[in-house]
Design a protein around this nucleic acid. Structure first.
Length: 941
RNA sequence: GCCGAGAUGGUGGAAUUGGUAGACACGCAGGACUUAAAAUCCUGUGGCAGUAAAAUGCCGUGCGGGUUCGAUUCCCGCUCUUGGUACCA
């Protein structure tokens, strides 16, 4: 008697696969390669939840499928193990983040291993491992030692730039560099001090130091992400946050803007994803125009994409944080301006952009001359202008820009219509393109023509120039944190120097507390005796900031190719063989962060000749999120009293909403006793229940009623107590069921809340599959009879569907087709080896354990993972007749069966003489009969 | 605000390129087996009207329009949910 015993089968095969290293991947092989990758997880303390495996199962299915199709498949897993939560935990408990992280990784690995993934664990990488971050630091140093040559359109070694400076100065250098670098000759370069030279070079390097605005929280002594700031105060603790300029390491990703944009066309990513990156890069064509400030030597340069509307400029707006603001402010306006700037600067950029209802701004007291008209217009300050975009100054054309229009209305500034048809409109910005009016030499021209004409005019007269602008900014690389890669830099006389390669990795030092120093220095400043020592024994300070989370994750896909190499980050042989990632699965939340930074680093390594592919991820698929269903409980604001969900309306007091652990709730009903034990402060809480009148049951038992919780669908997170762990499901149903079920839930890209309601159906399917191989008594029983035509049709229909579905990643419908196949074979009582053996192979990528077991019961000696995917034969699917749906005016009314090769004329004739069709024709002749061969007939009445 | 995605029965979802809306599964209802329950199996199941039961008709893919012989699919305008918005990863 052998029933389907998932536990025994799964642990047996997992052990055997590990023991025989079935999933070992080698780099030298004659087989074609396939590289399938998941975005690696951050090992959080909550462990793996049911959302993580969604993508992992999909990639595992593809990996196993490609192996069956004869590919050498690289399908690795590792951990993005630097990050804030471990550090936060360290601050609170004093526990070293490395210890927490190791523990969390162990939990994750254990959880991953019971799901039966085909990872080669010998290739695991961890970003917080010094043997890994040695190479992250090395890449940083390569970026430090490089500059971007726009003429060659690639990065080059900084030594070559120094050569050019020595021979020719920087006059002919077309490089990505800081804006304030002055032109110098070779002789001038040679005369500069080492200090000066270092400063200039820093302005060219692909990683450099700069002063940038950050959210500084004095009380926490650290910089906060925009996410961590709510309404101008820190989310944690509610301390005030100010915007402040700090010296930070930057990454010159803008050098790559054009290539990052251009290459998108070559990638097999969703249009949505490419669009997001395009918008992030934000390329726009336009020009700069110089506006001279009246009675001053200052010139304000604006960037505009609409120089055609320059005759409609009625004022100019400058960003509150712009450095010229103090010089432009008149005595009379000083107080107003200072007040305004103070307030505006402390608002986040997102807030400033999002706010459209209230328009704010202040007049500086200064004026500029519009070089096209010679007219004098006022300079205003407004927070809708950001210092970081364009030049930080805009020319305002209230008649054709919405924000300018609102601003002009609010402050009663003039509006000059410049586009024909807008003269008499209440809101002229409704029409943005057309023939120009009130615009001097541009009158009568169309928008596009006028733009070109205006730029030419400005260029000829020297007060403007054609300009391509990008919205993308250089990336801030420094973090005022402990748990990240140390930046391999030390300072000598204030000039940054690279820690020599032999001294890498520069390991994280031990510190007493994981907090910033009392003076607001980053945590690494606490390290005792942590200094760089040169040969002469001189000591220098190391850089005290660490690298951001995205540093380690920007190149990990290369390390998997050659994970143990201690000579280089990844050997050329390995990267030449594995090349680009063929399928990358991960969430859309990485659209503009990780996926741009990785492309940038990969492109840089390509430029420097370390790898041979320019793009890291050829095909990208975005998996949706599995959301959690949180349970909510309502507590009286002042008393230790809880109110059941449906009684809230009638409750007299004020209540607060709290998250309650979902393990204490069954179908919205709270287990009150368990809840009292959950938190000591609730031990004596009072509960107002519902659903039953208080009283006594006939048996004498007191009727208590039910306590019902509210619920909300949101991100699965430890802090929301809504995490569902896959372990319990595997325990009850097995990994094969979980794998099939997660795929069966729906398309991989769609987000949905976790819900186990349908899991029984999938479990039943596996039992039915098992029963195909067993008789009623449970004995293994398979026949060697030749299959019938019908059985072959069922099998080959499924082979075809599965293959198409996996290629397109429609894994939910493959599971359905397996169910249909097994249902049909069960109905035919088919237990033929010729059919079942192939069926096992096609199901094996989805349910590797049960299929491996049955495969061996069939007498096979080697693993099913080494089998060959069956070839679909179209001959088995040919049908002699086709049943046509016949519709009248597009509505299906009847069905008529025709010979597969019946002519259109025959079909029309038969259809028109059909009783049902006649009824709808009602003795009128049909206006039209449309026959789509093989598909449908439509009669138009 | 800006950029991206989505909305189909009681539920998860299916529908290949514009061609039978609701595959497959859950749930529910009824039945078989059983002393009973569980498990298993069978039948039915979008809504409304209609019928003894059928037949049959009408409505129906977030809302309002449009294109088409034919629209879940294409176009225009909305609503709601959701991801990103540069120091969460």
């Amino acid at each position: 008697m052998a029933e389907y015993q998932h536990k025994a089968i799964e642990s047996k095969w997992q052990a055997r696969w590990a023991e025989q290293k079935v999933y070992k991947v080698t780099n030298d092989t004659t087989k074609p390669k396939f590289y399938v990758l998941d975005m690696f997880p951050y090992p959080s303390g909550a462990g793996l939840h049911v959302g993580h495996p969604l993508g992992y199962i999909a990639s595992d299915i593809v990996s196993r499928f490609k192996k069956l199709k004869g590919y050498n498949v690289l399908h690795p897993m590792g951990f993005d193990s630097f990050g804030l939560p471990a550090e936060q935990y360290a601050i609170e408990t004093g526990q070293h983040p490395a210890i927490t992280t190791e523990k969390n990784i162990a939990t994750f690995k254990k959880q991953l291993s019971i799901l039966g993934f085909d990872y080669d664990w010998d290739r695991e990488v961890k970003t917080s491992d010094p043997s890994y971050y040695k190479w992250t630091q090395w890449i940083f140093q390569q970026l430090f030692n490089a500059w971007y040559d726009y003429t060659a359109d690639k990065a080059r070694p900084i030594a070559e730039l120094i050569d050019i400076f020595e021979k020719d100065g920087n006059r002919h250098v077309n490089a990505a560099c800081n804006e304030n670098i002055k032109i110098f000759t070779a002789q001038e370069w040679k005369n500069k001090s080492e200090q000066e030279k270092a400063k200039i070079l820093l302005g060219y390097r692909l990683t450099y130091l700069d002063e940038v605005m950050v959210n500084w929280c004095e009380a926490l002594g650290t910089v906060l992400a925009n996410d961590e700031v709510k309404d101008g105060v820190s989310e944690r603790g509610g301390y005030p946050v100010e915007r402040k300029k700090m010296r930070q390491w930057m990454m010159r990703i803008t050098a790559y803007a054009e290539r990052l944009l251009r290459n998108l066309d070559k990638l097999d990513w969703s249009e949505a994803m490419k669009e997001m990156q395009r918008n992030w890069i934000g390329k726009s064509f336009g020009c700069e125009i110089d506006f001279k400030v009246v009675n001053s030597d200052i010139t304000l340069t604006v960037f505009t994409t609409r120089p055609d509307t320059v005759f409609g400029v009625t004022y100019v707006v400058i960003a509150p944080e712009h450095e010229l603001v103090p010089r432009l402010t008149s005595k009379l306006q000083k107080k107003n301006v200072e007040q305004y700037v103070q307030r505006a600067i402390n608002r986040s950029e997102r807030e400033r952009q999002a706010e459209v209802k209230t328009t704010t701004g202040v007049f500086t007291g200064s004026y500029v001359i519009n070089p096209f008209t010679g007219e004098k217009v006022p300079i205003w300050i407004a927070d809708y202008v950001l210092a970081g975009y364009g030049t930080g100054v805009v020319m305002a054309v209230p008649s054709s820009d919405d924000r300018d229009y609102r601003f002009a209305k609010a402050f009663d500034l003039p509006i000059i219509p410049v586009i024909a048809g807008t003269e008499n409109l209440e809101n002229p910005t409704e029409i943005k393109h057309g023939k120009l009016i009130n615009s001097g030499f541009l009158n009568g021209l169309d928008t596009q023509e006028a733009i070109q004409k205006a730029i030419e005019y400005a260029e000829e007269r020297g007060f403007g120039r054609r300009k391509i602008n990008y919205r993308m900014r250089d990336a801030v690389f420094s973090r005022q944190r402990y748990w990240g890669e140390p930046v391999p830099i030390y300072y000598k006389n204030g000039i940054p120097h690279l820690v020599p390669f032999e001294k890498l990795p520069l390991e994280l030092p031990q510190i007493d507390q994981y907090k910033p120093t009392p003076t607001g220095e980053p945590p690494l400043a606490r390290a005792k005796n942590w200094k760089y020592r040169d040969e002469d024994g001189n000591e220098y300070d190391y850089e005290h900031t660490t690298m951001p989370g995205w540093a380690g994750s920007s190149w990990y896909f290369l390390r998997y190719m050659d994970p143990q190499n201690d000579q280089t980050f990844c050997s050329k042989e390995a990267s030449n063989y594995w090349n680009t990632v063929d399928l990358y699965i991960g969430g859309t939340e990485h659209a503009t962060g990780h996926l741009l930074y990785s492309r940038f680093w990969n492109m840089f390594l390509y430029d420097m000749g370390y790898i041979n592919h320019e793009e890291p991820f050829q095909k990208l698929v975005n998996q949706g999120m599995i959301q959690g269903r949180s349970s909510l409980i309502y507590k009286d604001k002042y008393e230790n009293k809880f109110i059941s969900y449906h009684l809230l309306d009638g409750y007299y007091g004020e209540t607060v909403e709290l998250h309650v652990d979902i393990s204490l709730v069954r179908g919205d009903e709270l287990d009150i006793e368990a809840f009292k034990k959950w938190r000591p402060e609730y031990k004596d809480a009072e509960f107002i229940t519902e659903g039953a009148k208080l009283g006594r049951h006939e048996s004498g038992e007191v009727i208590r009623g039910k306590f019902i919780c509210g619920s909300v669908i949101e991100k699965m997170s430890k802090s929301k107590y809504n995490v569902v762990n896959p372990d319990d499901i595997v325990e009850k149903y097995g990994a094969d069921t979980l794998r099939l079920y997660e795929m069966f839930l729906g398309p991989i890209e769609v987000s949905k809340p976790w819900n186990t309601d349908g899991i029984e159906g999938v479990y039943k399917f596996l039992r039915k599959l098992w029963n195909l191989f067993h008789d009623e008594k449970g004995n293994f029983f398979v026949s060697d009879e030749a299959p019938t035509k019908e059985e072959l049709r069922i099998l080959h229909k499924t082979i075809k569907k599965t293959e198409e579905d996996i290629e397109k990643l429609n894994l939910n419908t493959s599971v359905s087709s397996f169910m249909i196949c097994v249902n049909e074979l069960t109905a035919l009582k088919c237990n033929k080896r010729a059919i079942l053996q192939d069926l096992l192979i096609i199901i094996s990528p989805f349910a590797p354990h049960i299929t491996e077991e049955l495969w061996h019961l069939l007498g096979n000696q080697t693993s099913i993972t080494k089998a060959v995917f069956p070839t679909y034969n179209s001959e088995y699917l040919i049908e002699d007749t086709i049943e046509y749906p016949v519709s009248v005016n597009g509505k299906m009314r009847t069905k008529i069966t025709f010979d597969a090769n019946a002519s259109v004329e025959t079909i029309q004739q038969v259809v028109l003489s059909d009783e049902v069709v006649k009824k709808w024709l009602n003795n009128q002749p049909a206006k039209k009969v449309i026959v789509v061969p093989g598909k449908i007939v439509n009669v138009v009445v």
